[in-house]
Design a binder for these strands. Structure first.
Length: 264
DNA sequence: ATGACTGGCCCTGCCAGA
């Protein structure tokens, strides 16, 4: 089972790139972030035509997450929102169980973590609180011992080696010590960073800013992650970044990241 | 060459992203 995460930065702007990717790469599960549209505006027919079931949690203008599952795999036990969202209606979390006749089931979440800038605004404590709520939810899910993949745009640069120029990110919400510590606390629940487990090299990036020639200069950062529970990590076969999609016309500023799990 | 973006929105500068 191949599982991809991709922040598309507006699904309406990116549906052509998405369906081309689905038809070429044929991932089994796709976790999308930053849809920037409401559920009824999601280009459902185009995605279904590529053979995928679609579950969305949309929001007008901002945020928005979705799960795509390729037939004959099936999707069930859909959860929208993270425990403790309360009055907060930001569409940042959707989760479901993916099952198939020839594979052990995998619970998959598509997560769009808050950016958190500026750090002296309420946005930063909101980001840290979201990471803590995610940690507690992950702990609860892992008790069931079903393979679990928490995939998405975490807006966290885990280590200096995950940035081309870590000094440029000093003081930023993506790289502050408290952000990195909260991410490590999540990992310490027993999760494995799927890409890092497969490829220890420097220079693996998933985001390049549109500005200042970041892409041609390869000034990237690694902030899109697939975190695997022990049952999922035991099945980890490979992981890769689909970097070429950043070079297309009108690209997202993020590229897809994919892990392959054995059937179990 | 000193590199200044992109998307969405109560349409036009402003917020948000990272």
């Amino acid at each position: 089972m191949r599982i991809t995460t991709w922040n598309v930065n507006s699904i309406k702007q990116r549906v052509g790139h998405l369906t081309a990717f689905l038809d070429e790469a044929r991932p089994d599960v796709v976790c999308l972030q930053e849809l920037k549209c409401q559920d009824e505006a999601f280009p459902r027919a185009e995605v279904e035509a590529s053979g995928y079931a679609v579950e969305t949690l949309g929001q007008k203008a901002y945020n928005g997450v979705a799960l795509l599952v390729r037939a004959p795999l099936t999707i069930s036990e859909i959860r929208r929102g993270l425990p403790g969202d309360g009055e907060d209606v930001q569409a940042r979390y959707i989760e479901a169980l993916v099952s198939g006749a020839d594979t052990a089931p995998v619970r998959v979440a598509s997560i769009y973590l808050p950016n958190g800038n500026p750090v002296d605004s309420p946005k930063y404590p909101y980001k840290l609180a979201f990471l803590e709520r995610l940690r507690l939810h992950a702990r609860n899910l892992m008790r069931a011992e079903t393979a679990l993949v928490l995939a998405g745009d975490y807006n966290v640069i885990p280590e200096p080696s995950d940035a081309a120029d870590p000094e440029a990110w000093r003081g930023d919400a993506l790289f502050l010590p408290q952000s990195r510590a909260a991410f490590r606390a999540l990992l310490a629940e027993g999760l494995t960073d799927g890409l890092r487990a497969c490829d220890p090299r420097d220079g693996l990036y998933t985001f390049w800013d549109y500005q200042a020639g970041c892409w041609p200069r390869n000034f990237g950062i690694r902030i899109d992650h697939l975190l695997l529970s022990p049952q999922a990590a035991d099945r980890l076969v490979s992981a890769s970044v689909q970097k070429h999609l950043r070079g297309l016309d009108k690209p997202s500023d993020h590229v897809p990241v994919t892990v392959e799990l054995s059937a179990g």
